[in-house]
Computed example of a mutant assay.
Amino acid sequence: MEADDEASEIKTERNLDNQDLSFLQTYATGFLAEYGWYVLFVCVGIYLLIQHLNKNRRNQEQSATASTVGHDPASVVRRQEALEAARQRMQEELNAKAAEYREKQQKLEEEKRRQKIEMWESMKEGKSYKGNQKFSQNTEEASSSTVLKPKTDKKPLRNSGFNPLSGEGGGTCTWRPGRRGPSAGG
């Protein structure tokens, strides 16, 4: 019996040594026939991902080298001073505009107060303030404006009075839109 076991072991070893890889070809062609497009898309995706990562790595390396070169203490101080000067100029411009706006507002309030006082004075005297105001405006307009052209009356393009959308000129029958809302059913 022992001899038979040894003979069977030798036969199986010999069979494994003599086999070629033709069975792999059938499995590979079946796999590619079934999943070939998926494999292609995955390979293209992996290639694009590797290219993207390489580009990002190169950019990071370049920025790291540029940042180490650009961190000269004197240049940093100059840049900060320039930023501070620019901020100071902008703040001064803003303050000047704010002061100008406050002056305008004070002038307007003073003018309104003066007009109210004039109106009160004229009402005490029994005069109509609005009438005086209109009169003063008319004299100012007459002195400052040029001769105005009279308005021309525009005539309609068509002389016939028929317009189907307006309901005019169509005789006795006119169309009216129906009621809005649901029908009056029970």
Score class of each variant (00 low, 15 high):
181 G>P: 02
28 A>L: 14
134 K>V: 10
147 V>P: 00
159 N>H: 09
82 A>V: 02
29 T>C: 06
45 G>Y: 14
41 F>V: 12
106 Q>E: 13
20 D>C: 01
145 S>R: 14
65 T>M: 11
124 K>Q: 12
76 V>D: 09
186 G>V: 07
58 R>F: 02
114 R>C: 09
152 T>P: 03
22 S>E: 13
71 H>Y: 01
32 L>C: 09
46 I>C: 11
126 G>F: 03
121 E>T: 04
126 G>I: 01
21 L>G: 03
114 R>H: 14
58 R>C: 03
137 Q>T: 11
170 G>T: 06
77 V>P: 03
34 E>P: 01
100 E>M: 01
32 L>D: 06
184 A>R: 11
109 E>C: 03
173 C>G: 03
40 L>W: 06
181 G>L: 05
154 K>C: 04
102 R>H: 07
107 K>E: 12
44 V>C: 13
146 T>Y: 04
33 A>V: 00
68 T>M: 12
143 S>T: 04
114 R>M: 13
63 S>N: 11
1 M>F: 08
50 I>K: 08
34 E>I: 00
88 Q>H: 10
87 R>S: 06
106 Q>V: 07
122 S>A: 15
160 S>Y: 05
31 F>C: 02
49 L>G: 15
183 S>M: 12
161 G>I: 00
99 A>K: 10
130 K>F: 10
184 A>D: 08
99 A>T: 10
39 V>C: 03
